[in-house]
């Protein structure tokens, strides 16, 4: 991975983290969290850990759906 790609994926990561911290609405926070995950997955693939990348990519939506259960209860 050269420096340009590294900067791009790092920018996705920092943007997602900042937006997740700064948003107020829970739905917008979850959408920003998924931008953060989009920045993390390429780092795992670049290391060559493809099985880990598959497992993480399938587990991340599960935890989002668990959070959505709480959000739906809190904001009817």
């Amino acid at each position: 991975m050269n420096e340009l790609l590294l900067g791009a994926f790092g920018a996705l990561l920092v943007l997602g983290a900042g937006a997740t911290i700064l948003e107020h609405d829970p739905y917008k926070k979850i959408i920003s969290l998924s931008v953060l995950i989009a920045g993390i997955i390429p780092f795992i693939v670049d290391r060559g850990l493809l099985d880990v990348a598959t497992a993480v990519a399938l587990i991340a939506p599960l935890s989002t759906i668990f959070i959505l259960m709480a959000v739906r209860r809190a904001t009817p």
């Binding site: 998924s34 693939v45 493809l50 099985d51 990348a53 598959t54 990519a57 399938l58 939506p61 989002t64």
Partner: peptide, 20 residues
């Protein structure tokens, strides 16, 4: 294996958008 990882990522994020 990368195609499995890419498909898993794509399906996962689509499922997430669907749930949201």
């Amino acid at each position: 294996l990368t195609i499995l990882a890419a498909a898993a990522y794509f399906v996962g994020t689509t499922l997430e958008s669907n749930a949201i």
